[in-house]
Design a protein around this nucleic acid. Structure first.
Lengths: 339, 339
DNA sequence: ATCTTCTAGTTAATCGATTAACTAAAGTAT
DNA sequence: ATACTTTAGTTAATCGATTAACTAGAAGAT
């Protein structure tokens, strides 16, 4: 009797079907013509043994793992998880799988993961991470010629393709909208300015002020981390220090949540006492009071695009090495801005 | 010169260090005593070539992939993504990696993924999925002796370990709390009753009514899917059909969001016109008006526990085959219930 | 009838690691 | 001095697939 604990091998299938291993392989992969009768024997043998090809052995031989790594800072972020969903759905359709790594923006962890990725011989990598803006550790990837696509947060001088939303444009629209409501004293709660997301949204904000002739005031730029706590603390600071501001542009979903938390606690009125325009369009945006106006990023689409791009690169159908694709964000106007 | 496009192999390291491949392997894995001088030669050679062991080759030889599959319905769900984060963080520390598959509760997709998993020879699998309550397709896993841990949604008669929150208890507490507010007409918006989560929360609800001598009324049980749309539609139905209800227990975060959406739209007053207790504790719970009372599940902890369990099983340190671990949910009382 | 081409398969090397079995040299006990 | 252990390494088989190179027989061309 066949050993039940071990998976049957191609060799066993071959011997049961009374053909060579080459023939079995050719049947499975449709790589050479095989007569119908022999095919049938092979299929029968596969069926009888409940054979499942060992993809590890295949990977070793053909030198590709069919694995795409995803390096992200935090899978539990609303926006990121939608991106990942887009990536996963797309890749699985093309026959690739996702190796997920969540770094918590920890530099050391990120470095370690890169080594794991190289060890597992991933075919390509999608990166939406990096806490510090320090990118030396990506050098190894470049050396090893691992195809990389950067998503949303992008290092400046890197021979890799990038996919991102047009953050400058989005932030510009939000700020412009507040200006059109008649506000001149518009503050910003921003994430780290060494992230491209943080920086670009800040630039959009600045540019809108500039275009409308509103002088830039350094004291109403509040920089923190892209998380709930930071949103809360900076809003608190704003009000406790009585900073002279009528409206606020907030740079991402988590920070908006934090801001709302403080504002609700204190019973401050939106938009009367402070008008708000956020970035991102979290699912809770239309059930809070007042509903949050935001800049909706096409998260799922972003994932799809990144997935397609990395596969194209892996398969050599994409010769571009520093292409930047911008997807446009969308204004979702609700009430928090004063509309 | 060494070919730069290909990763250096252990053989190349061996030849540069002028030792056998066995010795290099022993140095890397610390499997046999090797003299300091030889060790140094080997390390130098590794360094010089920038050698990274090929984990695929290793996997083939030692017959383990160090890969754990995760089969989930939707990574963009708030609760699930936290679970996944817990799993990933825990596994990566023990040297395992996560192969992520999101099924959208699509039965065919799930079947396909199981095949992919078997092909990739994952060492173990964590499942929190299955749309239909149909579990035959897991048979193959059992046959192939792939260790499985079920998370949160669990089939009834399966020789696998399970990790879940005590849904009955959580739902009981929520319902009991509404009863103690003096309500007798308490409806439920529930997910599919063929999911163990749906069913157990329903049971908890029923049991609480029973214990307090409140007669069960079939017409105030509204069953739908665990998503926003369903929460919205069922709430709409409730009010449009003028069903006689003072309070509502809502079975998960997405459905609560949908309910709030409808209620806000219609300007219905919570808790005066309808008191609400939800399941889950989404991040927006305390910024909506009134803040949502909920049953908080230890999502991250659940992930940690499942990860540890699957590794223990894989490594043979866990002989249990049908252990069920319940983690307790926690009541978070805010204002929507009437407090 | 002879030579060429085509068809349907087989044989065996290969991918890059691990590891059981072996060996030569040095150390130790009697 | 002899026999036994220990030490520090090597040799070669192995994991399970793919695939280039080969082969025997049938078909087709002249």
């Amino acid at each position: 009797m066949v050993n039940n604990l071990k998976n049957p091998t191609l060799k066993e299938v071959a011997s049961l079907a009374q053909v060579s291993t080459a023939t079995v392989s050719n049947v499975i992969n449709n790589t050479k013509h095989v007569s119908e009768s022999v095919k049938k024997q092979v299929f029968n043998a596969m069926e009888a043994l409940n054979y499942k090809p060992n993809e590890i052995a295949k990977s070793l031989r053909v030198q590709q793992s069919r694995l795409i790594g995803i390096l992200i800072s935090d899978i539990s972020n609303d926006f990121i998880s939608k991106v990942v969903k887009g990536i996963e759905n797309t890749l699985s359709e093309i026959g690739y799988n996702v190796l997920l790594c969540s770094t918590d923006s920890d530099f050391e962890k990120e470095k370690e993961y890169l080594n794991v990725f190289m060890g597992k011989r991933i075919d390509g990598l999608i990166i939406s991470s990096s806490g510090t803006g320090d990118y030396e550790h990506y050098e190894d990837l470049i050396k090893a010629k691992v195809p990389v696509v950067f998503l949303n947060r992008c290092p400046d001088h890197f021979p890799s393709n990038m996919v991102m939303t047009n953050n400058i444009k989005g932030a510009y629209s939000a700020t412009e909208h507040l200006i059109k409501h008649g506000h001149k004293k518009i503050g910003i709660i921003t994430g780290p300015l060494h992230f491209s997301t943080g920086r670009d949204r800040f630039i959009g904000y600045q540019r809108a002020l500039d275009d409308y002739g509103i002088p830039f005031r350094k004291e109403i730029v509040l920089e923190g981390c892209f998380n709930i706590e930071s949103g809360y603390e900076l809003t608190k600071k704003l009000f406790e220090e009585n900073i002279d501001v009528e409206a606020l542009f907030i740079s991402n979903n988590s920070m908006s949540l934090g801001a709302y938390k403080y504002i609700k606690e204190q019973g401050i009125k939106i938009p009367e006492e402070i008008a708000i325009y956020g970035y991102d369009d979290p699912e809770w945006a239309d059930i809070v009071d007042p509903p949050l106006s935001g800049i909706k990023q096409p998260a799922y689409q972003l994932g799809i695009y990144a997935a397609k791009k990395i596969v194209d690169t892996v398969q050599g159908n994409c010769t571009e090495t520093r292409g930047i694709k911008y997807l446009d964000p969308e204004m979702v106007v609700r009430k928090s801005c004063g509309c």
